[in-house]
């Protein structure tokens, strides 16, 4: 058996920061327990020797798929469609908070 995994509070806060989510104090505690338990469980893979098994990224073995030449891309949105659900917009643009 692998030794018990226990995430530290700082790790939880760092993960939340990376993931762009805000946590309440209660959530920090809850996630510390629950994420630790999940990681503990999935660590069972460590006991199984995968050898030089290849990595599977695509289960049905497709590769090099391109959009057919000459076909019209019907996915394109008009400006009004693209802005339809934006809460903050100005003229034809999305409005965001200042970055710099």
């Amino acid at each position: 058996m692998t030794k018990k995994t226990r995430l530290k509070i700082e790790q939880i806060l760092h993960l939340a920061d990376l993931a762009g989510v805000k946590l309440t104090e209660a959530e920090v505690k809850k996630y510390q327990d629950q994420l630790s338990q999940t990681i503990e469980y999935v660590s069972n893979l460590k006991n199984y020797h995968v050898g030089k098994a290849k990595i599977t990224y695509q289960t049905t073995n497709l590769s090099n798929i391109f959009f057919p030449d000459g076909e019209k891309n019907q996915r394109a949105f008009s400006i009004s469609e693209a802005l339809l659900n934006a809460k903050n917009k100005k003229d034809n643009f999305f409005k965001t908070k200042k970055i710099l």
Binding site: A19, V21, Y31, N85
Partner: peptide
């Protein structure tokens, strides 16, 4: 920004999953 509400609206399960994936 482009659509939907900000990330503060994410529920507990989603946050947990995103964080584990990040890990």
């Amino acid at each position: 920004i482009r659509f939907g509400n900000p990330r503060e609206f994410l529920g507990s399960e989603a946050k947990k999953r995103i964080m584990l994936g990040t890990y």
